[in-house]
Write a protein that binds this DNA or RNA. Structure first.
Length: 335
DNA sequence: AACCATCCCAACCGCAAATCC
DNA sequence: GGGATTTGCGGTTGGGATGGT
């Protein structure tokens, strides 16, 4: 069984020796890695390029943080995993100095067990049914105050990921939003506490908003937010669309959950106004055509047969947001 | 002390996406 | 455009470390 990248050479496998580490570090710090498949030869190592890459990324990079995970890190992993599942590389991006492998190992060896002990299914974060969890486990759940009972939307999310797309996917249709009556202060890692309208109508709604510079997830149930990159452009959420991962989009309760950093405020207002105008203009022009002539009403459910998903994508992209709805079969839309 | 079971994590594997030519 | 190569990812494994008997 050979390696594609180095089938001719005989390659060493298994644990790396300190000498090999030294060679690799020395080579990469002076020359950079370049093409990984050429690294072993140039660095004088009898390894395959893939192995070198892995060793560097997971162990030798100077920016790596070693040692055990902090409580905040653990919490972050659980929170993000709840939304995006086993996407370790994505999760690791929220934890500076940690690798996907490290996060995955930590999950498998530690967090998974904790969740099970707390009566939660580590895959779905749903409560385990009584026959799945022991009485001892149920008892342990009493300690659990940070994990809310998981939401329907997460169940839907995981089902959609697991099921082939040619089956009829589960979906939710959100009722029309009710006027906001109260508001909630939430803390974000990137600016001062913000006020958002409460989401009483959709207490379990979660979403991820993405653009090139920002990825924020917000879960109304557990009230957390995360940041993966500095904000340099404003998040704009036209007409209350919410995202769950890049492939899933759900109508939201029609609130814009983010304020911008003060220094961005002016710029943001301009962008938002412009984007909103563009969006409205485009919508006015095309909604009848694209929407199959149907009147779009709050809470309407659309699918690929009566609505042009490209239109959604282009609309979102005109607002500077990344969105891939091609795998979606249907979604709800609030106006 | 010896044996065994379990845990943990570095490393491997196969696959898919991205990139190159 | 398409085959070859490279890169990146998630699942899995092997073996050393640790704990229990």
């Amino acid at each position: 069984m050979g390696h594609h990248c180095c089938s001719k050479q005989k390659v060493k496998r298994g644990l790396w020796s300190p000498e090999e580490d030294e060679k690799l570090v020395k080579y990469i710090t002076t020359h950079g890695h370049g093409c990984w498949s050429s690294v072993p030869k140039r660095a004088g190592l009898q390894r395959c390029g893939k192995s070198c890459r892995l060793r560097w990324i997971n162990y030798l990079r100077p920016e790596l943080k070693r040692g055990s995970f902090s409580e905040q890190e653990e919490r972050m992993i659980i929170d993000v995993h709840r939304i995006i599942g086993n996407r370790w590389a994505q999760i690791a991006k929220h934890l500076p100095g940690r690798t996907d492998n490290e996060v995955k190992n930590f999950w498998n060896s530690c967090i998974k067990k904790k969740l099970i002990a707390q009566g939660l299914d580590p895959k779905t974060h749903n409560l385990l049914s009584p026959h799945q969890s022991t009485s001892k486990n149920n008892h342990a759940r009493n300690d659990l105050h940070i994990y809310q009972e998981p939401t329907s939307i997460f169940s839907v999310n995981s089902q959609m990921k697991d099921e082939p797309m040619n089956t009829s996917p589960p979906f939710i249709t959100l009722p029309p939003p009710i006027a906001n009556t109260t508001s909630t202060q939430i803390h974000t890692p990137f600016h001062e506490p913000m006020t958002i309208p409460n989401s009483h109508d959709y207490p379990n709604l979660a979403w991820t908003v993405k653009d090139q510079n920002l990825q924020v997830s917000f879960d109304f149930a557990s009230r957390f937010s995360i940041e993966s990159a500095p904000i340099t452009s404003p998040p704009i959420i036209p007409s209350g669309l919410g995202f769950l991962d890049e492939n899933l989009m759900w109508g939201s309760c029609g609130v814009e959950p983010f304020e911008l950093p003060r220094q961005e405020e002016m710029l943001q207002q301009q962008r938002e106004k412009k984007a909103q105008e563009a969006y409205e203009a485009e919508f006015d022009e095309t909604n009848k055509m694209k929407g199959g002539g149907q009147e779009m009403q709050t809470g309407s459910l659309f699918n690929s047969s009566n609505f042009d998903l490209d239109f959604v994508e282009s609309t979102m992209s005109s607002c500077g947001m990344y969105c891939n709805v091609s795998s979606m079969d249907q979604f709800a839309w609030d106006f």
